[in-house]
Design a protein around this nucleic acid. Sequence first.
DNA 1: GATCTCGATTGATCTGGGTCAAAGTTTCTG
DNA 2: CAGAAACTTTGACCCAGATCAATCGAGATC
Lengths: 246, 246
Amino acid sequence: MNAPTISAVTCGDCPIRHRAVCARCDTDELNELDAIKYYRTYEAGQPIIWSGDVMNFVGSVVSGIATLTQTMEDGRTQMVGLLLPSDFVGRPGRDGAAYNVVATTEVVMCCFRKKPFEDLMVRTPHIAHRLLEMTLDELDAAREWMLVLGRKTAREKIASLLSIIARRDASLTPKGATNNMSFDLPLTREAMADYLGLTLETVSRQMSALKKDGVIELEGKRRVTIPDMGRLMEEAGDDSDGGLIG
Amino acid sequence: MNAPTISAVTCGDCPIRHRAVCARCDTDELNELDAIKYYRTYEAGQPIIWSGDVMNFVGSVVSGIATLTQTMEDGRTQMVGLLLPSDFVGRPGRDGAAYNVVATTEVVMCCFRKKPFEDLMVRTPHIAHRLLEMTLDELDAAREWMLVLGRKTAREKIASLLSIIARRDASLTPKGATNNMSFDLPLTREAMADYLGLTLETVSRQMSALKKDGVIELEGKRRVTIPDMGRLMEEAGDDSDGGLIG
DNA sequence: GATCTCGATTGATCTGGGTCAAAGTTTCTG
DNA sequence: CAGAAACTTTGACCCAGATCAATCGAGATC
C-alpha cells in the first residue's frame, strides 16, 4: 500500500473510497471533494495531530494504523480510539483537536481542507447525516469501551481487545471467517496497555496465560491465531457481539 | 418543576427550550416540532429505555436525572452517561437503543415521535448539524471519561466526578460561582461507584477522606460544598478544564 | 414509639494487578 | 558479525481497592 500520488487519484478510485464520507456522493460532489483533497504520509511514531492544536483538515486513513490518546501532566496516558484504514479523522465544526493522534505504523492519510469541506457539508445534507451516523458509531464504541475499562478484569480486557481487532479485521477481508482466523497485532504491548488501562507487564502476562490456556496461538510476538472465536468472546465476558473501534 | 400539560405548552416556552434541538429553529419549525411532541413522566427508579428495545421517540430531559448504563450478564454494571435537564436522548437514524436509560429521580421528558422528527431533520439541515455538534460533545465527554476510568486513582475519580457535577451545575445557574459553591449530589454512593468503576465502599471511604482533608464539606449525605474549586481540580489530576457529561 | 428498609459508614482481611528488577528476543546498524 | 536499541517475558514483592461483615442513621410504615 504505497501512497498514491495526488494528481493520479480521484476520490472515486481512492483505495479506500472514504467509507465515511463518499459512500453516497454523486459525481459532482466527488469532483468537489477531489478538488480539496491531498495525500500525506506519516512515519511510524510520528504525531499527526497534537491535542489542542488547530486542525485545518479532516480526512480518512488510507493505510496504516493510528491511535487517539489522552495524556495527564504526569505522563499517564490512555488510548481513547484506534484508527484503522477507512476511519475518519476530524471534527467538522470544531477548531481544536481534542486528543493526540499518533501514527503507530506508517500512515497515509487522504485529507480534505477543512473550510471547503465544511462548506460542502452545508450544501450536501447527506454528508452531514453520514457524519452523524459515524459519530454515533464512535460514541457507541467509546461507551462500550467504558464498560471494558471500568468493570472488566485484565484477562477479560485482553480478550475484549483481541476480539474487537479480530472482528474488525474479519469485516475488512472478503470472507468473514469466524474460526481459525489470524491477524497481525498492530500494537505493541505498551500500546495495548494504554488502550486497556493496564501496565505492559500485565498485558504480557495475560497474553501468555491466554496462550497457555489455548484461547489464542502466537507465532512470534505479533501474529495471533484465534482457534475458537466463541471461546474468545466468552473470555471477554461478552455474549453479545457489540463493540466497534472508535 | 411540575410537568407542564401538553396542551398548554409550545416548544418555544418549554421550560428547557430543548437546548439541543431548538436553539436555531424558526417559528415554522418550532410549530412542526410542537405538533409531534408530548410529555411523559417517569418515577424514580423506573426504566425509560431498555438496551436493545426499539425506540420510537427522541427527546430532551425537562427535569430530573437519568443515567445511561451498560450491564454484563453477571450483573457488573458501568454507567456510561448522566442525563441532566436539557440533555438530549435518542439516536436519530437508529432503531434500537444501545444502553439502559433509567430515571434516578422523577424525570419529565419532552419527547418527539421519531419518524416525523427524522423527517424534519432531513428537511432542516441545521438540526442535523446541531445534533452532530451535540454528539461530538458526548463523544468528547465519553473519551474524557475513558481517561478517568483507565488511569485515575479512586480519590482522583471521585474528585473528577464532583468537579464535573459542580461545573455542570454552575453553568446552569445564572451566576457561575467558582468558589464556595454547593449542590445536591444527584447520585447514591452505588450510582457513583457504577459511574467510576469502583465499589460503593471505596466511594464512601474516599468521600470521607476528601471531607477530612477539607477538599469538600458535607451536610447530611447529599449536600456538597466545594470551598476551593482549584483544589478540587488538582485532586482530580486535572489542570485543564475539559470534561462534560454525556 | 417500635420496627423495617434502604442507604451510608467503618473495620478487617484478601487479592489482582502495579512496581521494581533482571533476562531474553528481535531487529537494526555499523 | 558484534553491539546496540527496542520490545517482550518472567520473577518477587507490595499496595490500592475489592470483598465480607457489622453498625449506624433517616425516613417510611404500622
